[in-house]
Simulated scan of single mutants.
Amino acid sequence: MGRLRSADAWAVGILFSRTGVTSVIENSQFNGALLAIEEINEAGGIHGRPIEPICYDPASVVSRYGELAERLLAEDGVNVIFGCYMSSTRKEVLPIIERRNALFFYPTLYEGFEYSANVIYSGAVPNQNSVPLASYLLENYGGRFYFVGSDYIYPRESNRVMRNILRQGGGEVVGERYVSLEAGAEEFASVLGEIEALAPDAIFSTVVGTGTVNFYRAYLKATNVHKRAPIASLTTNEAEVAEMGAEAAAGHITAAPYFRNIKSAANSRFLERYHKRFGTVDTVTSCCEAAYFQVHLFANALRLTGCMDTDHLREALRGAEFDAPQGRVKIDPDNNHTYLHSRIAKLDEQGEFVVELEVRRPIKPDPYLVVPALNDWNFRLTPMKQGLGN
């Protein structure tokens, strides 16, 4: 897609990969952002003017995100960008955004330990997903963990955080390996051999993109389905499950703010509109949902300001709330991250996520894990099997 076509429109940049190794997730984010923009425009736009997306495909190449962000800001004349999945790509875009005092909406869970006045972080941080997942696994499976991740910033930093959380809870990491983003069965063979030898109680996976599908499939072939330790993840989602198949997915666990099959009126409306627009809901993921609601948060701020000035938008976004498909969310004025819900779900034999635990209310983001105590979660988590919660 090219430059702005209408002088009357509000121009925004969209920077998600629709090709390459992370496209299985970024396509869902792209769809979520476009759906929100179309909803806003169908309702009359903002002050009678439509939002017009200027979209580029970085093709999952890290350096391209920075190059295309520069093009959006310098040549296309936008100062608001929605985009990125991997932390390495966020860090490519971040200095460009800050140098030009633009605004960047990032809809992906990440490792935390970052703040920028120019970024709205709408994905989960460790206190919203890693801490409850660790508590759940320690209580239900045991204390011996094996880490496997893709070889870039997020997996290594996420594992560092998770290791500290587990240590606090009395667990230990018995092995840790990293693979390429394009890892296939051959590269996973030695990882699986090590898992078999070490016999961990649970595997914490930060493998992303097509590697996720390849890992789960390889794990299924290499192990006895009735004896294997569960793979627990913060990233594995419905789109990847659809690609890997229900048999490879069954029994594994994900912690996330949103799952497609949660019961709420807002989620039902979201899924209905998504299906009408894209012909399926198979690609709806937690990252898709975050991309969707952050566009609506931006639009509400734009209604208040009536202008695209970064400083005015930033002020309007402080404390802003929205009834998202996952439930009520809020931008924390203290750190530009988002109050989110937290849920832990296990995949059943049909490849559907079954929520087993959830928090009773949105959780204040703590990107620096100032209060990381595992015990804080014991009273917040509601067992779904008791019929509580949604």
Rank of each mutant, 00 (worst) to 15 (best):
E92P: 07
E139I: 06
Y110N: 15
N140M: 13
S122D: 04
P107I: 02
G112F: 03
Y136G: 01
R100E: 13
G143Q: 13
V148S: 04
I96N: 12
V119P: 02
R100G: 04
V119T: 15
I96Y: 11
M86N: 12
Y121A: 05
F105G: 02
T89A: 15
M86L: 12
A117R: 15
F147C: 05
Y106I: 12
A117K: 15
Y136M: 04
Y146S: 06
S130A: 11
L103H: 05
V119S: 10
Y141N: 11
N101A: 08
C84N: 14
R90V: 15
F145W: 03
R90W: 13
Y106Q: 08
S135A: 14
F105L: 12
L137F: 01
I96L: 13
N118T: 07
N127G: 04
L103V: 12
Y141P: 09
Y85M: 04
C84L: 08
R99Y: 14
E139D: 11
V148E: 06
Y136A: 05
S87Y: 06
G123L: 00
G142I: 12
V148R: 06
L94I: 09
G142V: 09
N101L: 06
S135G: 10
R100T: 12
F145L: 09
Y85W: 15
L94M: 07
P95N: 08
E114G: 03
L138H: 10
N101K: 11
S130R: 03
R144L: 10
F147K: 00
R100Q: 14
A124Y: 01
G112Y: 00
V125M: 01
A117T: 15
E139P: 06
S87N: 11
S88Q: 10
R90I: 14
L94Y: 12
N101H: 09
I120K: 00
E114W: 13
S116D: 10
R90E: 08
F145M: 11
S122V: 15
L103C: 10
Q128C: 00
A117I: 09
A124R: 03
P132C: 00
R99L: 11
G142P: 07
R100K: 14
Y115C: 06
V119A: 11
G123Q: 03
R144Q: 15
G143I: 06
L94V: 11
F147E: 02
A134F: 04
G143A: 13
E98N: 10
G142E: 09
I120D: 00
V148T: 13
R99W: 10
S116N: 09
G83R: 12
L133N: 07
F113K: 08
P132M: 00
V148D: 03
L138T: 08
V125H: 02
F147P: 02
E139F: 03
F104L: 12
S135K: 05
S130P: 01
N140F: 09
S130H: 02
Y106E: 02
N118L: 02
G142L: 08
F113V: 09
K91G: 06
Y136S: 04
Y110T: 05
L137I: 14
M86H: 04
E111T: 04
L103Y: 13
G143D: 15
L103G: 05
Y110P: 00
V119N: 00
Y136V: 10
N101R: 10
R90Q: 12
L138C: 07
I97W: 11
I96W: 10
F104Y: 15
A102V: 11
V93W: 12
G123H: 02
L133W: 01
I96H: 10
T89W: 04
I96S: 09
